[in-house]
Design a binder for these strands. Sequence first.
DNA 1: TATTATT
Length: 417
Amino acid sequence: MALRLGRLFINKYAWRLFNTSRQQLQTNMAVRLCDVASLLRSGSWAPEPWTGQVIAAMETQLSNGPTCNNTSNGPSTISNNCSSPVESGSIEDSKTNLIVNYLPQNMTQEELKSLFGSIGEIESCKLVRDKITGQSLGYGFVNYVDPKDAEKAINTLNGLRLQTKTIKVSYARPSSASIRDANLYVSGLPKTMTQKELEQLFSQYGRIITSRILVDQVTGVSRGVGFIRFDRRVEAEEAIKGLNCQKPPGATEPITVKFANNPSQKTSQALLSQLYQSPNRRYPGPLAQQAQRFRLDNLLNMAYGVKSRFSPMAIEGVTSLAGINIPGHAGTGWCIFVYNLAPDADESILWQMFGPFGAVTNVKVIRDFNTNKCKGFGFVTMTNYDEAAVAIASLNGYRLGDRVLQVSFKTNKTHKA
DNA sequence: TATTATT
């Protein structure tokens, strides 16, 4: 039994790591879409040949622009935005606070902040997680300092594809008990009914926030079930009274309308993660350290198994991971030392240089306290070893302006310039 | 007949 659980545990981590690295790559791609495109146009950045595919994907997404509606993986709202102070009659609607929906399951709060921080200064950011299991509930909040940045985030990040999801970015409504539990589950729908028709049917009872008709993944044909989320719970209650057991216009069978199940209902997976994750997060102890080691081991396994381009480490690298002496590794990622930056270098140039290679969680330009000019070096933290290694191999010796950069994993020794 | 929208 213990072995079984252990195996499940390991597989779960391997799976998560694999998806996380893919997702983070895409996240960082997304952040740098505009930057990279402008660099390409200016000709000041020459990517390695293999990054061509990544760049092409960026350009495709950039040229397509954000798409809000009717994606195969996300519900959409025909009636547009979620927050209209006029319509909702509220004058307290924040113009800085955004709700972000349909986030990939494994996206972290830091990644959320990283993505939205590329737009402007963030006052606060929260990824909402299940209180018990710690699992992401797939949505979060981003509160900007400047309302203009919130608007910009909606314009540039709404409809962004991350992994299999298409995120939705909209103004958050003022939090209130009246808007909770307003999600309806509808079944018995005619297979021919469109989302628009579904919304038309329900819109008489209130403002619809989202609607969705589930479709067969292969054929794309309606499964006759869907969801309607109203602005307010009372509206949902009225819709149940008015539409449950009723036949939609032209339909031969009545539909069933009821409140949707809460997402926090426990699955076996949730129970498993509750067993292992929850105590770890609250009380970092031997189990947490063990989990960290699994993460690291699996990271290496994924690097070996998934990437054929690059064989990052020899066996001594694996054994060193069991210990704590890992050059450049600070627990949260691989720290990279970048030397010979110009005095006017800023963080954005580091994002631009390293972002295309994979998941970048942090960049820092070291500045002189008095002049605020770059002291000639900085640091970049990357999540995945292989991506960091390729970035280093590609950017070490890179000519930035009239300077030749030195790029390496950060060592534990003090660097002598 | 079931996705993850209110901190």
